[in-house]
């Protein structure tokens, strides 16, 4: 019988192509979203008791926390961008026998995202 050659992927496969690297970054930035979810859970858990809430509040006011928020914001925005870019793949709209341009769908989603974010910021700042 013939001896076929298998070629397993090397561990650093994702460093060999920009697209693969971007993909890995997209996956890794989801950790930022996860981190912020942990933060909110902490906030909720500590809300029941004044002492632990003040610990949480002190942490929030620290410069470490501000930096953490900034980093998480940047990573989350990147992650959100990748999701919006994906929307035309899932939301396929048709006008007769012509497909609605993917850019229009991604654009509409971006606008929607900005509007909702704006509304949330407005609510919070009010």
């Amino acid at each position: 019988m013939t001896r076929e050659l298998t070629r397993p992927l090397p561990w650093n496969w994702w460093l060999k192509k920009a697209v693969y690297f971007q993909f890995m970054m997209r996956e890794l930035t989801s950790l930022a979203v996860f981190a912020y979810a942990l933060l909110i859970i902490w906030a909720l858990l500590s809300a029941a008791d004044a002492g632990s809430f003040s610990t949480f509040y002190t942490f929030l006011s620290s410069s470490l926390s501000v930096w953490l928020h900034l980093v998480i914001l940047v990573l989350s925005l990147y992650h959100t961008g990748t999701w919006i870019a994906l929307t035309p793949k899932v939301m396929v709209l048709w006008r007769g026998d012509e497909r609605v341009d993917p850019g229009v769908i991604a654009g509409a989603n971006s606008i929607l995202f900005l509007m909702i974010s704006g509304a949330v910021i407005w609510l919070v700042l009010m």
Binding site: V19, Y20, F23, E27, L86, K89, V90
Partner: peptide, 25 residues
């Protein structure tokens, strides 16, 4: 996991990545 490179390399513009996301939905 939607790397999306399948669609980029497709010589016939089939968009398998899009097909899979539509199937997921």
């Amino acid at each position: 996991t939607y790397v999306g490179e399948c669609t980029q390399v497709c010589p016939k513009d089939v968009d398998p990545a899009g097909a899979i996301q539509m199937l997921k939905l």
